[in-house]
Amino acid sequence: MKPSTSSRRGVLDRLNSQSVDVPPLPDPDASKLIQFDDPFERFKESLALVGGEVHEIEHPSQATSILNRIEAFSSAQRVASVLPAAVKSTVDLAMVDDPHSLASLDWMVASGEFMIAENGAIWVDGSTLPHRVLIFIAQFLAIVVPRDAIVHNMHEAYDRIGAPKPGFGVFVSGPSKTADIEQSLVLGAHGCRKLQVFVTS
């Protein structure tokens, strides 16, 4: 549908008819923003707080053996992975045309760009995902991220992303959750039930 232009004109005219003094746009002073002595320690604490689990591994391939100790993984039927070096896919993502066919996905293994110490979030670049629904529709999610890819706070995070590419990107912080029933925290609302983070050195 093509937008009509009269309301556009009306809104802009109303905004332009009332000029308001424009104060300058401030930039945060980096020296005032939190830095951690050990950002990775802080990341682990933050992630634990939001319900995620961290596994430190030397090589991506160790991820599979750790996951195999989790019943939900070892019994999983459908596993999708964008990192075959870490976990092998049992679903051929190249063959998936319609994201609806991913409805029965048990696990998704995604690649994280970097970690944020202050809140346990990981930036996932949508261009690494054949379908963006993968990380939301899977019952369980694992993200593999390099140990040295870490920033202290969100300011550094946005600076690190720089100019966003067209498409999609998401900060994932812990599994999906809700407290909408009497403020009781329940993990596994609509997205993943649990989040495993593999940090490779």
């Binding site: 969100m154 498409g167 900060f171």
Partner: peptide, 27 residues
Amino acid sequence: RDLAVFTRLLARSATGQPITSYTSHFH
């Protein structure tokens, strides 16, 4: 980069979380 200021404040103020589970950017 202004998003940094707001994503730091929003969930902390709203529900006392450091950030929401998903902060999705659509371009």
